[in-house]
Simulated assay, not measured.
Amino acid sequence: MTAKTIAVNLITETAQDALAGCNSLRSIHDTAKKLISCNQLGLDFEPKRNNAFEMAIALIYCNVDEAIRSEFDQDAIRGFADAYSAGAYVEPLGVAAENGKLRVVTGFTRYAGLMLAIKEGADLKRVWVNQVEGGRASELVRQCVSNQQVQVSPLDLAEAYRELVEEHGYTVAGVAAAVHRKESHVRKLLDLVNVAPEVKDMVEKGQASVTTALAADKHCKAGGTDTVVHMQEQLAKAQAQGASKVTAKSVGAPATLYGRKDLDVAAPVLVQLADQLEQALPLLATPQSVKVELTIDSADLNLQDLAKALANIRAAVKSAQAGAVATGKAA
């Protein structure tokens, strides 16, 4: 019996055991060749090489949670499926060889297109792959630089850069060198990680660019204003003018959360509070708690104005604190 007369999809227990000890494309390639010559593997598993490896699809698996993409472009998946079905060139998948199997680490959209083509009846047995070595950090880098065909969203790139820095010990310069981009690009996306979720959502929906969102966030935090409220107001103004997004030209200067009037209204009450605390706190010891009592007469103050003034000052303090925390993380 020759290799050509055995079942093309044959994979014996001997072959499975032999492949289970392979942890590189080279070893899987060489072992598969030997197994086919010994009639332990069918010709469906015959690997081929041409600056990459053409490997059996049956050996490939994919964990979509390892992709840096939060969403996949369905049109791109459709395009790859059509390309695979037509036998057109598609860039090889990046894989990690583990125990005789090939785990997809780059090209998740291509893999989804490959699976769609097979589901729709394409007779595909093999696909071209390249090996990615070096663990999760290397896989992240390859995903970051392997998005020319289907662009990765800024938010997904930002999260990938954050993981490289915070979990894999990369510096900003190291990330920039690895993904072949300028340090300013990496810093900008790392700053994007720290903006409010509502602002990130605007970037994701194309309602504001990364640059516009970051400029507004910096301006608002420096002036004690709320970035989310400001950006939502600017978007409403832009939409009222027939635009679909906030631009540098359409973004107005953020209004401060508090002004001189707020300070004038709140000052008498804050002074009274300070007097009460001074009387309640002993000079030589710090108590566990202090109880003070304030009496505010509506005849002396407009209580609605006071409540608004205090709320504005409190919001400004919280915004400033949030900005300080974000700056500390970025450093």
Rank of each mutant, 00 (worst) to 15 (best):
Q207H: 11
V195N: 03
V317M: 08
G113R: 10
F45A: 03
D82Q: 14
L43K: 06
Q74E: 14
S289F: 06
N23L: 02
V210P: 10
A299G: 14
F80V: 06
E71H: 15
A320L: 05
L41F: 00
A56H: 09
Q207Y: 03
L190F: 09
S138V: 01
T2S: 11
K329E: 12
T31Y: 00
Y61A: 09
V141A: 05
T12W: 03
G174P: 09
E166L: 14
E198L: 04
Q276H: 11
D226Q: 12
A238N: 02
D65K: 15
A324R: 15
L35D: 07
N130L: 12
T171F: 02
N50R: 14
L114C: 03
L301H: 11
K261G: 08
I118S: 10
C62K: 12
D191E: 14
L284V: 14
T171Y: 00
R314Q: 05
F72A: 05
G169F: 01
L189P: 09
V199S: 03
T286P: 04
L140H: 09
N130K: 15
I60W: 03
I57Y: 02
K205N: 05
A331I: 13
A137S: 12
A248V: 11
Y61I: 06
Q239R: 15
C220H: 08
N194Y: 13
G174E: 02
A215Y: 01
F80E: 08
A160F: 03
S153W: 04
A177I: 07
A177S: 14
S37A: 14
A331V: 13
K34M: 10
I60H: 02
T171I: 01
K33G: 05
L301A: 06
T211D: 15
D226A: 11
E198S: 09
H29N: 12
V141G: 04
A3Q: 10
E163N: 08
R103Y: 01
K318N: 12
E120C: 10
L102C: 07
D65E: 13
A248Y: 03
L310T: 06
A160K: 11
N63D: 15
C62E: 12
E198M: 06
E13A: 13
W128T: 07
A307P: 03
T227C: 07
M1W: 03
V203W: 00
L164K: 08
A67Y: 00
V64G: 08
L306A: 04
E46D: 10
S138F: 01
G242N: 10
A285G: 05
H185W: 10
E204P: 05
Q272I: 03
K249M: 05
L140C: 11
A196F: 01
K308F: 01
A240P: 04
D17R: 13
L25M: 10
I313R: 06
L301Q: 13
H168N: 05
V129Y: 00
T14I: 09
E71F: 12
K125H: 07
T256G: 07
R69S: 08
A7S: 13
L155D: 02
V64H: 10
L294V: 10
Q234C: 07
R181A: 06
V251W: 04
Q276R: 15
N63T: 15
V104T: 09
K291A: 11
A177K: 14
V195P: 04
E98P: 06
L192R: 02
K308E: 10
T212V: 15
K33L: 09
A243L: 13
A196L: 08
A3G: 04
V150F: 01
D305A: 13
A83Q: 09
I11L: 14
H230S: 05
T256C: 02
N147V: 11
A20D: 09
L303A: 02
